[in-house]
C-alpha cells in the first residue's frame, strides 16, 4: 500500500495519474464504437491530422488545441465527405486526408527546425508534463463525451449495428455519424499529449477489444471497456513509475497485456465449455453443439455453430479425441 501511495507525493505524478485515468475512461468508451463501426484506423489517422494541425496552428500563433482541433475536425469532415459516395473506402480516404495533413506539419517542422523539440510531446506523449490547463481540457472533453454517449446510447447502438434499419426507424444516421466523428476528434486531441500521436490508436482499441473477449453483450462491453480503460491508464502509470519507463508506452503495453490475458481466459473458457459439452452427451465421440444454445452451448469467437457441427474443431487435440483411434470421425450414438 505504501508503495502505491509513495508516488502520489509528487504533483507531476498526481496530474499524470488523473490524466491517465480520464483519458483511459474516455478512450475505453469511445473505442467500443470505434472498433464496432470499423473505424480503428480513423483514430490513428485523426491523431496524425491533429498533429499537423497543431504545427500549422503554432505557425499562426494559435493555441495547441485550437490548431489540432480545427485540423482534426476538418479531417473528420473530409473523410465523411469522401466516403459518402461509397466509391472510396474509408481506409483509403483516411490514408490520403490525414497523412497529407500530417505531411504538411512535417514539412513545416523541417523548414523551421526549432519546432522539433516542442512537438516531441505530441508525437510520443509527455504525461508527466501535463499542466493544470491540459487537465481541465481533458476533464471537460471526457465529461462532455460521456454525457453525449449516454444520451445517444440507443441511436448510436442501432446505427452502428444496422445503419439501414436505423434509417428506416427514423434515426438520422448521417447526423449520428457526424456527431460521433466530432466526439472521436475531441477524444484524440485530448489524448495526444498524454499517450502521443503514435500510440493513440492502441489506447482507443485495446480496452474495447479486451472487453469484447469478456462478453457478448453490448451494454456490458461498454461498461467493461470503460473500466478497463481506466484500469489500464492507472496501472500503466504506476508501472511506468516503478520501472522508470516512458509513461505512454507503458500504458499501451499494459493494455496489450490485459488483452492477452483476456484472450487466454476466453480460450480456456471455450475449451472447458466444449469439453463439458462432449461429456454431457455421454461420449467424446459426439461433438454436437446446440445452435439454440441450450445450457452452456457454443460460445465461440466467430465460427458459426454449423462450422463446429461440420467438424471444424478449434483445438487439434480435442479433434483427435472426437475422432476414434482409427482416425475416422464416429457418428453420434
Amino acid at each position: 500500500m505504501e508503495a502505491l501511495l509513495e508516488p502520489l507525493e509528487y504533483e507531476f505524478f498526481r496530474h499524470g495519474l488523473l490524466a491517465a485515468l480520464l483519458v483511459g475512461s474516455l478512450c475505453g468508451v469511445i473505442g467500443v464504437y470505434v472498433i464496432l463501426r470499423g473505424m480503428s484506423y480513423v483514430g490513428h489517422g485523426l491523431s496524425h491530422a491533429a498533429f499537423g494541425g497543431a504545427v500549422v496552428g503554432f505557425t499562426l500563433n494559435l493555441n495547441f488545441y485550437a490548431g489540432a482541433g480545427a485540423m482534426g475536425l476538418l479531417a473528420a469532415l473530409l473523410i465523411n465527405r469522401v466516403t459518402r459516395s461509397g466509391e472510396i473506402k474509408s481506409d483509403a480516404a483516411i490514408g490520403i486526408v490525414t497523412t497529407a495533413i500530417f505531411a504538411l506539419g512535417v514539412v513545416i517542422i523541417s523548414r523551421v527546425r526549432t519546432f522539433t523539440q516542442s512537438f516531441e510531446a505530441a508525437l510520443f506523449g509527455n504525461i508527466l508534463g501535463i499542466t493544470g490547463g491540459d487537465l481541465l481540457v481533458i476533464a471537460l472533453v471526457t465529461a462532455g463525451t460521456l454525457c453525449a454517449i449516454f444520451l445517444m446510447y440507443r441511436p448510436l447502438l442501432f446505427s452502428t449495428f444496422d445503419s439501414e434499419a436505423a434509417r428506416v426507424s427514423g434515426i438520422r444516421t448521417d447526423i449520428v455519424q457526424l456527431v460521433f466523428s466530432l466526439l472521436l476528434t475531441l477524444a484524440v486531441i485530448a489524448s495526444m499529449n498524454v499517450v502521443g500521436v503514435t500510440m493513440i490508436a492502441a489506447t482507443l482499441i485495446a480496452p474495447a477489444v479486451t472487453a469484447r473477449m469478456l462478453t457478448d453483450s453490448f451494454s456490458r462491453m461498454l461498461v467493461y471497456s470503460w473500466i478497463l480503460g481506466a484500469v489500464t491508464g492507472v496501472g500503466g502509470m504506476y508501472l511506468s513509475y516503478f520501472f522508470n519507463a516512458a509513461s505512454g508506452a507503458t500504458i499501451v503495453l499494459f493494455g496489450a497485456l490485459l488483452f492477452c490475458l483476456a484472450a487466454l481466459l476466453r480460450q480456456i473458457r471455450e475449451r472447458s465449455l466444449l469439453r463439458a459439452n462432449l461429456h454431457r452427451h455421454g461420449s467424446l465421440t459426439h461433438a454436437h453443439v446446440h445452435p439454440s444454445g441450450h445450457g452452456e452451448g457454443y460460445h465461440g469467437s466467430g465460427d458459426s455453430p454449423d462450422a463446429i457441427d461440420a467438424g471444424a474443431h478449434p483445438d487439434p487435440a480435442l479433434f483427435e479425441a472426437v475422432q476414434g483411434h482409427d482416425g475416422r470421425r464416429h457418428a453420434a450414438p
Binding site: 440507443r154 441511436p155 449495428f161 434515426i171 453490448f218 469467437s301 458459426s304
Partner: peptide
C-alpha cells in the same frame, strides 16, 4: 455482422427506439 456483441434481447430492443427517450 454476426460477431457484433448483441444479445437477442438487445436486437429486439433496438426496434423500440422512437427518438423520444434519451435514457440508455
Amino acid at each position: 455482422d454476426w460477431s457484433f456483441p448483441v444479445t437477442v434481447e438487445e436486437v429486439i430492443m433496438m426496434g423500440l427506439y422512437t427518438g423520444r427517450s434519451f435514457r440508455p
